[in-house]
Amino acid sequence: MTTQTQLPLFYRKPQVLRFEDHKAMGLVGSQDFSFTAEATAIPLSVSEFMPSIRHYPIVFVGGKEPSPVAIVGLKQGRNLMLEEDGAWAARTYIPAYIRRYPFILVQSPDQDTRYLAYDSESGRIKPLSDAPDAAPIFNEDGTASKAVEPMLHLCEAYHQHRAQDTAFLKAISEADILVARHVDMDFPDKSRYRLDGFSVIDIERYRALPARTLKQWTEKGWTDAIALHLASAQNWGLLMERNQRFVKSA
């Protein structure tokens, strides 16, 4: 977590889970992703480029400190991957960032310890007395329950993957191969919209990198990630097609 004025996407009121405070709380099972309704981009780790390649354009945001995201919407405030019932689009990869919700890892002030927290405004963690079908958060000995343990592992894995991405993201930024891009779209109702605020790797700048750099990047697996990023551009058309289906069903 960053600061109270700059909370992670979707998290409105993160609260650290403590046995003494939450031993009577339970997790309500749900596959409702309605909390993503207004998102047009979802954070990704580089390790997710492979499963994302068939579904989303993968771009970078953040300027000097680029961060990869999956584009899920064309117009601000409309997630095209969200169905009317709150389910995610069938047979489509669901990014780990949202699969872990409402949980998240937060750092201690000294940065030495991570704690499992949750968004207390998510509605998925409730007193067991109010939600008898909910799974307890804690076991009686204070350890994470079977319902929460997988979420803890998912949060930890996501955190580790993002930490491992740092060197790659720093390298492509310092190599000056990221360029700002935008997408202009013409919709059937004659309206036009521009999606901007993101960057992509410029193929010509990438190919012009010194052979030694490319060799090092290949050894680290970074060229594979770049290839997946570049190939994901084909998915802009898929988003346009999905948007058209939503327009016809409206």
Rank of each mutant, 00 (worst) to 15 (best):
R78L: 15
W88P: 01
L82T: 03
N79R: 03
L105G: 08
G63P: 04
V69T: 07
R100C: 11
I53Q: 14
T92G: 08
D85S: 04
A89F: 09
P68S: 05
E83F: 02
E84T: 13
A90C: 09
I53L: 14
I58S: 06
I53W: 08
L105S: 08
V61P: 01
G62W: 00
E84W: 00
Y97E: 04
P95Y: 09
P66Q: 05
P51R: 06
S67M: 14
R54K: 14
A96C: 12
V61H: 03
F103S: 05
V59Y: 06
H55L: 07
P68W: 03
Y56A: 05
I58F: 08
I58L: 10
Y56Q: 05
I53M: 14
R78Y: 08
R91F: 11
K75Q: 15
V59F: 06
M50T: 13
M50I: 14
P57L: 11
H55N: 15
A89W: 05
R99E: 08
Y97C: 06
L74G: 12
L80T: 07
Y97P: 02
E84M: 08
K64I: 09
E83Q: 15
M81Q: 05
R99V: 13
S52H: 09
P57G: 10
G77M: 05
K75G: 05
L82Q: 02
P68D: 03
I98V: 15
P95Q: 08
R100A: 14
I94R: 03
G73L: 10
I71G: 07
F60T: 02
I98H: 00
I58Q: 09
R54N: 14
Y93V: 11
R54W: 12
S52W: 08
Y56F: 15
K75D: 12
G73S: 10
G77W: 02
G86A: 02
L82A: 05
R78C: 12
G86E: 00
E83H: 07
Y101S: 02
M50D: 14
F60W: 02
A96M: 13
Y97H: 12
V72G: 04
G62C: 01
I94Y: 00
G86W: 00
A87S: 15
V61A: 01
P51I: 09
P66T: 00
R91W: 04
P57F: 12
V61S: 02
Y101T: 06
P102E: 04
K64G: 04
R100K: 15
N79V: 10
E83C: 13
A89L: 15
D85A: 02
V59W: 06
P95T: 10
P102L: 05
G77F: 01
Y97M: 12
V72H: 04
E84Y: 02
P51T: 05
I104S: 06
K64L: 11
I71R: 02
P51S: 07
I98D: 03
P57H: 12
R100F: 10
V69Y: 13
F60P: 00
N79H: 04
N79C: 08
G62T: 00
A70K: 06
I71A: 09
I58P: 09
V59A: 10
S52P: 13
S52K: 07
G73K: 06
R99I: 13
L80N: 03
V61T: 11
Y93I: 12
Y97N: 03
Y56V: 11
T92S: 12
M50E: 15
P95H: 09
R91A: 13
